[in-house]
Amino acid sequence: MSGYLDEPSGHVSASVKGAARRADAQRNRERILQAARDLVREPGELKLNAVAKACGIGQGTLYRHFPTREDLLAEVYRREVEELVAAAPRLLEAHEPLDALAAWFDRVAAYARVKRDVFAAIEAATWRDLAAHSLGPIGEAVDRLLAAGRAAGSVRADAEARDVIVLISWLSRLDDAELDARGPRLLSILIDGLRPPRP
């Protein structure tokens, strides 16, 4: 218990209390982001008080994490990009390269929904900045997946990350019904197009 209790009072130390507060704040932040991600899909403008209510926290707590609606939505999008990029190496560890790419494309469809809804809810200057900063990491993830596929002989030699990004960018322009109906088929066609040509 040394270092955890103040001597000789036995009270919990300030460092432990501080760690608990930080952990609690991180949990609140995660709940806020998840609630905003869910609510941004609903019709109408996203309201911060609705996010706070969905999380069961006070509006003051929400504003401490995200002072404005755009701050919150920008972070929702950044988190989605981080998770999409992080999925690529995990999928390559668990699957053959082309299967990993197909599974990653399934994750892209979810990302496309978030991108569409967030970008529709924020100022053009903000979403352009977010898009510009996300292009590099997403391109690197695609390049990693394609390189693994080329090395395994399951992806055509001339496939480039930019080709894939241009093609998948159209997903964020589809509404939910069309994304559900066409998304899997479009991504399957893309996978087939990435295979090496037959001799």
Rank of each mutant, 00 (worst) to 15 (best):
M1V: 10
S2A: 12
G3M: 08
L5Y: 03
D6R: 05
S13K: 05
S13V: 05
S13M: 10
S15T: 11
S15Q: 13
K17Q: 15
G18V: 12
A19R: 05
A20L: 13
A20M: 15
R21H: 10
R21Y: 04
R22A: 09
A23V: 14
D24S: 15
Q26S: 14
R29T: 05
E30I: 08
E30M: 09
I32V: 04
L33M: 07
L33W: 03
Q34N: 03
A35Q: 03
A36F: 00
R37P: 14
R37H: 04
D38L: 06
V40Q: 03
R41L: 13
R41S: 13
G44T: 06
E45G: 13
A50V: 15
A50S: 08
V51M: 03
K53W: 12
K53Y: 13
A54H: 12
C55H: 11
G56M: 03
I57N: 04
I57D: 14
G58M: 01
G60F: 03
T61P: 01
R64I: 15
R64V: 14
H65I: 06
F66D: 13
F66M: 14
R69I: 05
E70K: 09
E75T: 00
V81L: 05
E82T: 02
E83D: 07
E83F: 01
L84K: 02
L84R: 00
A87G: 08
A88L: 09
A88D: 10
A88W: 10
L91Y: 14
E93N: 12
E93Q: 11
A94D: 10
P97I: 10
P97A: 01
P97R: 00
L98C: 09
L98E: 02
D99W: 09
D99Q: 10
D99G: 07
A100G: 04
A102I: 13
A103K: 11
A103C: 11
W104R: 01
W104I: 12
W104T: 06
F105T: 12
R107D: 13
V108K: 08
A109Y: 01
A112G: 02
R113D: 10
V114Y: 03
I122V: 06
I122W: 10
A125P: 15
T126Y: 06
T126I: 13
T126C: 01
W127T: 04
W127Q: 08
W127G: 13
A132Y: 00
A132G: 12
A132I: 15
G136M: 13
G136D: 14
P137K: 08
I138R: 14
E140R: 09
E140M: 12
A141V: 01
V142M: 07
D143G: 06
D143W: 05
L145K: 04
L145T: 07
L146C: 00
L146Q: 00
L146K: 00
A147P: 02
A148P: 06
A148K: 00
A148D: 07
A148Q: 02
G149W: 07
G153W: 00
V155G: 00
R156A: 07
R156W: 05
A157N: 11
D158W: 09
I165D: 09
V166P: 07
L167R: 11
I168Q: 03
L174N: 11
D175R: 09
D176F: 07
A177R: 10
E178P: 15
L179T: 09
D180K: 11
R182I: 15
R182Y: 13
R182P: 12
R182E: 14
G183P: 05
G183Q: 08
R185I: 13
R185H: 08
S188E: 11
D192C: 10
D192P: 02
P199W: 12
